[in-house]
Amino acid sequence: MTMTTIIMMAGIVYLTRVSGYFIGLQFRHIGELRPILEALPGCAMMAILIPAVRQGDIVDFTSLAVVLGMMWKTNNVVVSSVLGMAILLFGDNVISGS
């Protein structure tokens, strides 16, 4: 089942890569479609992210808030991720210790 899922995922992602190029060859004017295609990935990520955050605990929420704030301010993926991971790993100890 895992193999089937991975192959299916690979197929879907590959099709989106190839189809864009070949669709573009057929239809030069995609003005009507563009805002939808631009909004879709962000909408999907939010629809996945929000329920995950809602199920998380205070440490998860804090790490996400810190990461988003840091990313927005510095745009530094490395610093933001390391900070977020550190909060996830050691946050429980800090909260239970205080």
Binding site: T16, R17, G20, I23, G24, I30, L37, A44
Partner: peptide
């Protein structure tokens, strides 16, 4: 779906 835009 953003890959579709990239391809286009």
């Amino acid at each position: 779906t953003r890959n579709i835009l990239l391809g286009m």
